[in-house]
Computed example of a mutant assay.
Amino acid sequence: MTRRLADLGGLAALVLALGLAASPGRAAEENDYPTDARVDYVFACMAANGQTRENMQKCACSLDQLAAILPYDKYVQASTILSMRQGVGNRANEFRSTKVFDDKVADLRRAQAEAEVRCYRG
């Protein structure tokens, strides 16, 4: 039993030495996207880029990078704005012509561009 605990202690030290243990705040920030949102993103990405295993891996990478850059609540806000902009009428026009909404969408677009560079071109 003592040897087993010592082995586990050594494993924990190795993980820490390799930098695989993120601080709790950072891990929470990067993993705040719920599973269903992650799956929806990857499915939509694959629909746009092709239904191959390689594209699935790139799309998953892209989402991981996006999640590291943009908190989930900001992703939801920007996605909602983009969805509302597809409508017609005064309500949709409000979402198209408001600077605050433009800024939220721009944050999402920048994060997506960075994720694309890291996962598709890097």
Rank of each mutant, 00 (worst) to 15 (best):
79 S>M: 12
62 S>G: 14
79 S>V: 03
61 C>V: 15
76 V>G: 04
63 L>N: 10
52 T>M: 04
60 A>R: 12
48 A>K: 12
72 Y>W: 15
57 Q>Y: 10
73 D>T: 15
68 A>F: 03
69 I>Q: 09
59 C>A: 10
64 D>H: 08
49 N>V: 04
78 A>G: 02
67 A>V: 03
56 M>K: 15
70 L>C: 02
47 A>H: 13
54 E>V: 15
61 C>W: 00
74 K>S: 12
48 A>C: 07
64 D>S: 15
50 G>D: 07
65 Q>F: 04
54 E>W: 05
58 K>D: 00
56 M>A: 14
59 C>P: 03
61 C>R: 01
50 G>H: 04
67 A>R: 01
79 S>C: 05
78 A>F: 02
65 Q>K: 15
66 L>I: 13
72 Y>T: 01
68 A>L: 07
47 A>T: 15
64 D>W: 03
71 P>A: 08
47 A>E: 15
51 Q>G: 10
54 E>F: 05
53 R>A: 11
53 R>Y: 14
79 S>A: 14
53 R>T: 13
58 K>W: 00
48 A>P: 11
66 L>G: 00
55 N>K: 08
50 G>L: 05
52 T>Q: 06
68 A>N: 11
58 K>F: 01
47 A>Y: 14
74 K>T: 09
64 D>R: 10
80 T>M: 14
45 C>H: 02
77 Q>F: 06
72 Y>P: 00
70 L>A: 01
75 Y>L: 11
65 Q>W: 08
68 A>D: 12
79 S>I: 03
57 Q>S: 10
56 M>D: 13
63 L>H: 08
52 T>P: 01
46 M>F: 06
61 C>P: 02
76 V>F: 07
71 P>R: 02
72 Y>S: 04
52 T>H: 08
68 A>E: 12
48 A>D: 14
46 M>W: 06
76 V>H: 07
47 A>Q: 14
51 Q>P: 06
65 Q>V: 15
50 G>S: 08
72 Y>D: 05
76 V>L: 12
45 C>Y: 02
49 N>F: 07
50 G>Q: 07
54 E>N: 11
72 Y>K: 03
